[in-house]
Amino acid sequence: MEQTPEEAVLNEYRASLDGPGRPLSQRYLAEKHGIDRRKIKQIIAAPDHSTPS
């Protein structure tokens, strides 16, 4: 199943939280995925709705 760019950003950012070093920057993610940095901020700040409560 193909991910949306937003899902790819969120998954990549979350993976970087668990890894060594600092999390990926919003600027890096914005440039890599071609998404506006304000949108990146919204994506990574949004509550996770994909897991059932």
Rank of each mutant, 00 (worst) to 15 (best):
A45I: 06
E12P: 02
R27V: 08
A8K: 01
A8R: 04
Y28W: 04
R22Y: 07
A8L: 09
I43S: 03
L29Y: 00
S53G: 11
E12T: 09
K41L: 11
P52N: 13
S53L: 13
L29D: 00
S16Q: 05
D18S: 11
A46R: 14
L17C: 04
I35R: 00
N11G: 04
L17G: 08
L24T: 00
I40P: 00
V9R: 02
Q42Y: 10
D36R: 08
A8Q: 05
M1E: 14
P5E: 03
H49E: 07
K39C: 04
S53Q: 12
Y28A: 02
A30S: 09
R37N: 04
P20W: 11
K41G: 06
L17S: 08
L29V: 00
G19E: 07
L10Y: 12
D18A: 15
E7D: 15
P5L: 04
Y28G: 02
I44V: 07
I35F: 00
T51L: 13
A46K: 10
H49K: 15
E12S: 08
R38L: 03
D48V: 14
E7H: 12
E2C: 14
Q3I: 14
A15K: 11
I44S: 05
D48Y: 13
A8G: 06
G19M: 08
I43W: 12
A15N: 12
A30M: 03
S50A: 11
R27A: 05
L10R: 14
P20D: 15
Q42K: 07
Q26K: 09
R38Y: 08
T51Q: 07
P5C: 06
L17M: 10
Q3W: 12
L17I: 09
T4N: 05
G21D: 09
L10H: 10
K41C: 03
L29M: 02
R38T: 11
P5G: 06
H33M: 01
K39V: 13
E7V: 15
H33C: 01
P20F: 12
S53I: 09
E6C: 12
K39T: 13
E2V: 13
S16T: 05
S53P: 10
L17T: 04
G21A: 12
R27H: 11
D48Q: 13
S50V: 13
H33Q: 02
N11F: 06
N11D: 05
H33F: 09
E12V: 06
S53V: 10
